[in-house]
Design a protein around this nucleic acid. Structure first.
Lengths: 209, 209
DNA sequence: AATTTTCCATAGTGATCGATACGAAACCTG
DNA sequence: CAGGTTTCGTATCGATCACTATGGAAAATT
């Protein structure tokens, strides 16, 4: 991607916005939207309040930009798994194993920002909670799409409910996020992923036996 | 249980503490510990701040009492399922189905208070987040105990890892809690529970076929 | 160099947070 | 009734919340 910042005059920024956004993202990831105060952000980002507000408008906008950045930099495994040219079972296996790793990465907060960001919220933060819910719903829909594609190709039985199983997989990933937050190790999450995969009906053989 | 309140003198309370605690519990359940303000509690409990503080010490104590009440009144299904004299698979089935129902009960906030109460928290509320984590860990341990008992009786294969599977089941229940919060219906959660159960190795036959 | 534009740092805005001081009111024990 | 005790309602407390007004400093444009 090109850097198409407006090259107009004026005093240049004394900090790197992406680096600041990264710091904010990690803080939101750790403490959630509402529990992360401006004072914490100020310290973690190394900026003064006017610098933050000039660059990111307000706390809500900063959080939304952190969500976008999280989506782009931390959970590429999901799109990779679901778009890989592999059988359906293998795609779901990669998805779950990828989550196991992403949710327990050393040096990162445990779990998934989409889950930890604002599971419960005050009425004032209802819009933020809804936005995170939309991200989770989108993940589930992406899984359902992949399963439907697999069903169309014969990877899955015809009577199989794509939506129900997508809800199960998405739910398991959310559960892994909480287990990660509770201190589950990478190995433990991998085993959980493997266990969850056992609920998937065995791949059908297309030819031969 | 007997009511062993101190019958000493003084002006009597003008409200029912249990009823007030119920209102507080539902509010914490819906919005979480930190996002629930005293102003919200005041309105939902129908009390003035001094009434709340006199009866429940402070917000943190009130939340802990709400946790206890939640444990006693809302999730009896768990102990029922795990202590019922039934085969292990049936016990786990009842546990998951009970969660499906409890997490989507009409008129109640979706999901489980132990998950929604404080998944992410500010440094000030770290103790509360830890307490909830302890509740979740205790649930997982109770499942592990039940599985170990089942393994001892021959319900489960010898090579089966009780701890790993308990982590899977507890994780699935946490995931169901989030799906419930995202609007999953009782039926959808039941299907998720049934799907999750398929990962349990089939019951071994003790005699006959 | 003059002008324009943007950002910087300091300080502080009103609103809301959780929690209380105070004195009157209502009960029990003598 | 008087004395002791507890809760009541009213009015707030200091601290922190997200956020911004102000004015000078620094770099691009002319």
């Amino acid at each position: 991607m090109e850097n198409l910042e407006k090259a107009r005059g004026g005093r240049p920024r004394a900090f790197d916005p992406d680096q600041a956004l990264d710091a904010a993202m990690h803080l939101f990831w750790e403490h959630g939207y509402e529990a992360t105060s401006l004072a914490m952000l100020r310290e973690a980002m190394g900026l003064t309040p006017p610098q933050i507000y000039n660059a990111f408008t307000d706390k809500e906008t900063l959080f939304r930009k952190a969500l976008t950045r999280y989506h782009e930099t931390e959970i590429g495994f999901a799109l990779d798994a679901l778009s890989a040219p592999v059988p359906t079972r293998e795609a779901i296996r990669r998805l779950l194993q990828g989550a196991a790793e992403a949710y327990s990465r050393p040096g990162k907060p445990g779990g998934c920002l989409f889950v930890s960001g604002a599971l419960a919220a005050s009425p004032q933060a209802h819009a933020i909670a809804d936005e995170l819910k939309a991200y989770r719903k989108a993940s589930e829909a992406a899984i359902a799409d992949r399963l439907a594609k697999g069903q169309a190709v014969g990877d899955l039985p015809a009577g199989f409910s794509v939506e129900s199983f997508a809800k199960y997989i998405a739910g398991v990933m959310n559960g892994m996020s909480i287990q990660a937050r509770d201190g589950a190790s990478s190995d433990e999450l991998r085993i959980m992923a493997q266990t969850a995969l056992a609920a998937l009906p065995p791949e059908e053989q297309k030819r031969g036996a």
